[in-house]
Structures are given as structure tokens and as C-alpha cells.
Simulated assay, not measured.
Amino acid sequence: MSKIKHTTAPWHVGSPDKFIVRGPNGYPVCDVTFSDDFPGISEANSRLISAAPELLEALQGMVDIWITTCTTNGWDPAHLSQYQSALSAIAKVTGSQI
């Protein structure tokens, strides 16, 4: 997998009223704009963004397991739509190509 180029985990929502996602030692990663027109959306987006490093790590782990399992059993993981979706998502995050 690609070398990590983003702020290391864990990330968390810095305060419930400002929706600033922060990394280790309070380093700001992202400031989610609050909108009165869409209550709850800013908080939900902040939570999703703050989970991004753990989601990426989990997805990369799943891909590694698929590859190992398929190789061990003589299968080709390329036919699994979830495998292709996972590779696409990882490429989007890391800026790599599938």
C-alpha cells in the first residue's frame, strides 16, 4: 500500500459547536463549515472526516486479507465488486492508481 501522507491518527472533532477536525496534539486537519440550513450535517461530516484515517487503515487491511485469502485458494479477487470498490476508494484517498 502507499505510504501515508496525511496527518496521523487519531483525529477527533475539536469542539461540538465549531466542527474543527483535529489530529494529534490538537493540530487542525479540517474546518467544516456550519450551515443553519442543514442542521446536523456539519456535525455528521465532521465525524465522518475524523474517522477517515481509521477507515482507510481498516479498508487496506481488508484488501490485504482478500489478497491473501484469494492467493491461498487460487482465486482471483478482481471479480469481487467489493474488492474493486475498495481499491478505488484507497486510490482516491492516496492519489494512486488502481
Rank of each mutant, 00 (worst) to 15 (best):
1 M>P: 02
2 S>L: 04
2 S>M: 11
2 S>T: 13
2 S>V: 12
3 K>Y: 08
3 K>H: 05
3 K>E: 12
4 I>R: 14
5 K>C: 08
5 K>S: 13
6 H>R: 11
6 H>W: 11
7 T>P: 03
8 T>K: 00
9 A>F: 12
10 P>R: 03
11 W>I: 03
12 H>T: 00
13 V>H: 03
13 V>M: 11
13 V>D: 02
15 S>N: 02
15 S>F: 01
15 S>Q: 00
16 P>Q: 12
17 D>Y: 09
18 K>Y: 07
18 K>P: 02
18 K>W: 03
18 K>L: 11
19 F>A: 05
19 F>K: 00
19 F>R: 03
21 V>G: 05
21 V>D: 02
21 V>N: 06
21 V>L: 11
22 R>L: 04
24 P>V: 00
27 Y>C: 02
28 P>G: 06
29 V>W: 04
29 V>N: 02
30 C>F: 13
30 C>A: 14
30 C>T: 08
31 D>V: 06
31 D>S: 15
31 D>I: 04
31 D>M: 10
32 V>C: 03
33 T>Q: 14
35 S>D: 13
36 D>F: 11
36 D>K: 12
37 D>K: 15
38 F>H: 12
38 F>A: 11
40 G>E: 09
41 I>C: 07
41 I>F: 08
42 S>D: 10
45 N>L: 14
47 R>N: 11
49 I>T: 14
49 I>C: 10
49 I>E: 07
51 A>V: 04
51 A>G: 01
53 P>G: 12
54 E>G: 04
56 L>D: 07
58 A>E: 13
58 A>D: 14
59 L>T: 15
59 L>Y: 01
61 G>D: 14
61 G>A: 11
61 G>N: 14
62 M>I: 08
62 M>C: 01
62 M>V: 06
64 D>G: 04
64 D>I: 00
64 D>P: 05
65 I>F: 14
65 I>M: 08
67 I>D: 11
70 C>S: 12
70 C>V: 03
70 C>M: 06
71 T>R: 10
72 T>W: 02
72 T>G: 01
73 N>S: 13
73 N>H: 15
76 D>Y: 01
76 D>V: 06
78 A>P: 01
80 L>D: 15
81 S>F: 08
82 Q>M: 09
82 Q>K: 09
83 Y>V: 06
83 Y>P: 00
84 Q>I: 12
84 Q>M: 14
85 S>E: 08
86 A>C: 04
86 A>P: 09
87 L>G: 03
90 I>F: 00
91 A>L: 11
92 K>S: 15
92 K>A: 15
92 K>H: 10
94 T>L: 04
98 I>W: 06
98 I>A: 15
98 I>E: 13
